[in-house]
């Protein structure tokens, strides 16, 4: 009897979380999958089953989708390694005995506490043609004015810079924590064995940071497909979809063009990508290099 009541209590306590998770995560995912096989209902025309039509359209008839996937791929390929590399560099730097170390750490970390939209707005100002900070610097060197966000060649790269700037500080914290977990006696031992600081970093510190790198890598990859606030705030995907990312394209398809059937199919693709990364994460983290 007692046990039954306890079980009821248990379920009641878990209920809110279960309901929220089911209503806002699991059901939408399943619904998207189902919707992706149906056409978008328009006016008095109800949705019709169209099978894989949406997926065929993606690959065969939608150059924008291909462009967006390519953009997102390039975006991940550049921002993830760059942010991680920068994070590692900053962590190594602020882990040294430098002056005003606390202040430098704070400075590096500040972008992280800003919401992405706020960061985007700051950079919007930096990028402004004419009197923006970057163009003022350019003109000081006698270089021509550049419309960073308005030109096809620079828009995506400009967005990438914001991402790197914002993410690096966050990843730095993980590296810093990992670095401080390495006993200082290891460097002393390495030094006595004739290793310079650089050799120590390469042969001892970096290998010991591998688990952290893996963790950060997966998070960065997921972030690269999941965060588009800055695209919305800065370029709206433009010009001519040059800076559109997959999630942004889904958003536009669903809520600007109200093509919900097609948006569902796109969502399924995104879910597959994220699911793939997550599975890789679980696998890799399970097998990750265990030292202790």
């Amino acid at each position: 009897m007692d046990r039954r009541i306890q079980a009821v209590y248990g379920w009641l306590l878990a209920l809110p979380a279960c309901v929220l998770l089911a209503a806002f995560t699991h059901w939408p995912a399943v619904a998207s999958l189902i919707d992706s096989f149906w056409s978008t209902p328009r006016g008095r025309r109800p949705a019709q089953f169209v099978g894989f039509e949406h997926y065929r359209r993606m690959l065969a008839d939608d150059p924008i989708f291909l462009q967006v996937v390519w953009n997102n791929f390039l975006y991940a390929l550049v921002t993830v390694p760059a942010a991680i590399g920068l994070a590692l560099l900053m962590a190594l730097l602020v882990n040294e005995r430098i002056r005003a170390r606390g202040l430098v750490r704070l400075a590096y970390f500040t972008p992280t506490v800003l919401p992405m939209v706020a960061a985007a707005n700051i950079w919007l100002f930096f990028y402004t043609p004419g009197y923006g900070l970057l163009n003022q610097i350019l003109s000081a060197f006698g270089l021509p004015d550049t419309n960073f966000l308005g030109s096809r060649d620079t828009a995506l790269w400009s967005v990438m810079v914001v991402t790197i700037w914002k993410e690096a500080g966050f990843f730095m914290i993980f590296y810093l924590a990992a670095l401080q977990a390495i006993p200082p006696v290891l460097e002393e031992a390495a030094r006595l064995e004739g290793a310079s600081h650089l050799v120590y970093l390469r042969r001892v510190a970096l290998p010991l940071l591998m688990p952290t790198t893996l963790f950060v890598l997966v998070n960065a990859l997921i972030g690269a497909f999941r965060v588009v606030d800055h695209v919305v705030a800065m370029t709206q995907g433009g010009p001519d979809n040059a800076s559109a990312l997959l999630l942004f394209y889904i958003y536009e398809t669903a809520f600007r063009f109200w093509d919900t059937g097609y948006a569902s199919a796109l969502t399924v693709v995104l879910l597959l990508v994220l699911g793939g990364i997550s599975i890789a994460q679980v696998r890799l983290l399970d097998r990750r290099i265990h030292y202790r």
């Binding site: 006993p183 006696v185 290891l186 002393e188 031992a189 390495a190 006595l192 001892v204 290998p207 010991l208 591998m210 290099i289 030292y291 202790r292």
Partner: peptide
């Protein structure tokens, strides 16, 4: 030109 053995041994875990 000297070698040292530390109290904690300071072996490289990886």
């Amino acid at each position: 030109g000297l070698a040292m053995v530390f109290q904690s041994y300071a072996l490289f875990p990886h």
